[in-house]
Design a binder for these strands. Structure first.
Lengths: 240, 240
DNA sequence: CGTAGAGTTGACTTTTGTCAAAATCCGTGG
DNA sequence: CCACGGATTTTGACAAAAGTCAACTCTACG
């Protein structure tokens, strides 16, 4: 059903009718700029597992997630990595490519079939120039992201793995909400979960088992449900 | 000798004569705004070890470092912590207090006798409003900081302690340069070094010894000199 | 039906943190 | 100038946490 919306978007691009709430840019840009945005926008469908851009690529522009979920991650060696965040519908992507380094410092890979909107850098920067309010909001957004990132840094440095996994699960629950059967509304491989918590596959596996035995979570068919929020929260506090 | 400059600053604040290069705001603000800045600026001397603001404090404004070095850190429990960065002369401080959370997410503590400039939030925000260029630069600055922070995150997650310490030493050398006798131009307690590398006191201690034995660094009177840059760099690459 | 990738498990090693105790440095007041 | 108390430094023994490796199973999917 959102698909229709997207189609409408692409078909008659004379009219700007994307869901305002789902696009950072749209919610903030000037009314008179909207037709220009439509002309410069490119909607790109991405398959599950498809790479949208990769660490080291030259920055060509920025993206917005219209539909689906996209992981933003950094590589480490060839198998390991770290997921910095998961971009949901409406999120901005590739903004780390602003700044003075003109290569993406991170990769973006779709976790599910998704649809992203691409806006080339030149145009985006002109938009920023004519719209200080947008620049201001973007700055605030960066400030918030920086805070979050630094929180995560501290956790990574001092919280034991178990706590980090608990934290990751709580964050996912917070961010993606739950389905009717109370499961977190996202399906992640154990590998991705490991990358999110900054640990290894096997370690995640074992702790997930342990959490299940302790009836803190319940896993049914790849879907994780939190059954004892209090205990999970406690785990993030341990050793504080 | 820079002291004179600061004194001049305070004495006759009708004239704006701080070293432009040493103040983020000054280098970017509008000429006509400068007298207003002077009127709103407050130069504050801080003693070594003195806390400039603390995690959880309400955000009153932002700071610039005129002179000295200030660590920006997050607490964890009552003894441990994590140093996020060390602000040098000219650096902005407390900008993390922008964003939507109106409490500082971090603390700032002077590492040496320093002098900081305080600008209240209201005034700073009005400056941003009349000066989109400043907002833009600030956004870029945030983008850069975010990149750096996320780099550090990955390192914290996957680089072994030895590599992180090596990394920290290299970063310090890069940032603070060296004195004539080739030592890194900053004096840090082992505890601070530990917090910077995200590890414990004793671990830092042992590795510093090891690095000294391997003739990679040399420590004389609290001052650390890198004597074998190549090997140090190698340590940061291990296991990649 | 076979293969690749994800999940499962156990045994083992290494790294790193913790604790505790001694040694040393340093500023202050006598 | 010295003695004192507190902080920092130094060291060792030990424990726990977490990663590595290897093998085996399951499942989806062409």
């Amino acid at each position: 059903m959102h698909n229709n919306q997207l189609l409408a978007h692409d078909m008659k691009n004379s009219k700007h009718n994307c869901d305002l709430k789902s696009c950072f840019l749209c919610t903030l840009c000037l009314k008179e700029w909207i037709p220009a945005i439509d002309a410069h926008r490119q909607t790109i469908p991405v398959k599950k597992g498809e790479v949208i851009f990769e660490e080291g690529d030259a920055v060509k522009g920025i993206y917005f997630v219209y539909e689906g979920k996209v992981k933003v991650h950094k590589k480490w060696g060839n198998d390991k990595g770290l997921i910095l965040r998961i971009a949901n519908k409406g999120a901005i992507l590739g903004h780390r490519g602003l700044g003075h380094n003109h290569f993406y410092p991170i990769s973006a890979t779709a976790l599910e079939p998704s649809s992203v909107c691409f806006i080339d850098l030149d145009f985006f920067q002109s938009t920023l120039k004519v719209n200080p309010q947008l620049t201001y909001e973007l700055m605030m957004f960066f400030a918030d992201e920086l805070q979050e990132s630094e929180n995560n840094m501290r956790n990574l440095a001092h919280m034991p793995v178990k706590g980090r996994i608990a934290q990751a699960l709580l964050a996912l629950h917070e961010k993606f909400g739950s389905t009717k059967d109370n499961g977190i509304d996202i399906i992640l491989s154990r590998q991705d979960l490991a990358s999110l918590a900054g640990t290894t596959y096997e370690t995640v596996f074992r702790f997930m088992n342990q959490l299940t035995e302790e009836k803190i979570i319940a896993v049914t068919n790849k879907n994780i449900a939190i059954t004892n929020m209090e205990k999970l929260v406690l785990l993030t506090k341990e050793k504080e």
